[in-house]
Simulated assay, not measured.
Amino acid sequence: MRTLLRWALVGAAALVAVTVLWAALYRFVPPPATPLMLIRAAAGSGLERDWTPLDRIAPALVDAVIASEDTGFCGHGGFDWAAIEDAFDENEEGKRLRGGSTISQQTAKNAFLWPDRSWTRKGAETWFTLLIESLWSKRRILEVYLNIVEWDDGVYGAEAAARHHFHKSAAALTRREAALLAVVLPSPRRWSPTRPGSYVARRAGVIEQRMAVVRRDRLDDCVR
């Protein structure tokens, strides 16, 4: 029994060490691929991707993503507890399921983990969120997020998305284009920023208004 316990502790320590080193590496090195990219590629999707430093991505897209996904990004330590509590309350009341994930959580999930809603994956997501919040700057978290998030079938990252949808670089995106890209993030293979339905178009207008608040209230200061 003691031998088994000892090996379990060794295995756990090794797993922790590997994950810490993995997260530390991505602080400096762009992730070569993500689990979702590999899954989509195995299913026959293409792979459009072009890593782009944050300073070559339009500030409008930074503000649009913060406005749409996580207005508290610069102020929290990886988790928006109020949003998580609201999500639990709505889910328990039988309303449409929604998440309370921050940009940090989404970055951890996309960079290191498989797409799943299991408690095992959520636990791993929590661990990797703590790691990147400890080892990376907020600017690095957003830079990785904007370079690996899916923006259409087989299209990943801001540069590929800008060229795929608007035939321009990520640096040249307008406020409206940035808002449209941010709106489709929850369902990028179903919604289109270039052929927006009434909901996407209306929601993009709301995001544009929120972008002004993000800039006015300096909610993006941690990435400037």
Rank of each mutant, 00 (worst) to 15 (best):
V62P: 05
A43Q: 14
F28R: 10
G99E: 13
G46W: 10
G78K: 01
E125Q: 14
V20D: 00
R49K: 13
F28L: 14
T19M: 15
V65I: 15
L131C: 04
I66D: 05
A13L: 15
I84K: 06
L25V: 03
S101Q: 10
I39P: 00
L97R: 14
L61M: 13
P53S: 09
F88Q: 11
T126H: 00
L54Y: 06
V65G: 10
A12W: 07
V62T: 14
R56Y: 08
P115N: 14
A33F: 11
K138H: 10
L47V: 11
T126C: 02
G11C: 13
P31I: 13
R49H: 13
V149W: 06
P53D: 07
V149N: 01
A42M: 12
W51V: 00
R96H: 02
L38Y: 02
A12K: 07
L47E: 08
L113N: 11
R96D: 11
I66L: 13
A124H: 01
A67I: 03
L38F: 09
N147R: 08
F28Y: 12
G100T: 10
R27K: 11
F28A: 09
T129V: 04
E93V: 01
L15E: 07
A111D: 01
A58T: 13
S45D: 14
R140G: 02
V10L: 14
R121G: 04
P30H: 05
E150M: 09
A42E: 14
S118I: 09
A83Y: 06
V65S: 13
